[in-house]
Design a protein around this nucleic acid. Sequence first.
DNA 1: GCCCTGACGGGAT
DNA 2: TATCCCGCCAGGG
Length: 112
Amino acid sequence: MAETDGFFDRVYRVVRAVPEGRVTTYGAVAAAVGAPGSSRMVGWAMNKAFSHASFVPAHRVVNRQGRLTGKHAFPGQRTMQEMLESEGVRVENDQVVDFHERFWAPPSLDIK
DNA sequence: GCCCTGACGGGAT
DNA sequence: TATCCCGCCAGGG
């Protein structure tokens, strides 16, 4: 167990585990933290993530369609896309190109 | 303590 | 295949 058992902290841990140049979905993260169906909470956690001390690659988390639904939460509406492209992830029309190939499934924390 | 909202997802229509 | 509706849980008014 980690020092933090909070739902949000679990989400942060999973998101932080997303490799650079890869993306994951809210649903996948939710399932990884043992709360399948609570994908909304993941997004909520991401919003709060900006207040979090450690850096959380929230830009690597997109919805099931591979769409940058959370871009509006960044300083600039284009920041999220810029960050992704900066890591090698091509984004077109607010949507991740080859999303299925870029998708990365996070390991379940449930295992432990 | 109740009601509404919210970076979503999936099943039903 | 597109659209609608309901369910998830936490936080704020």
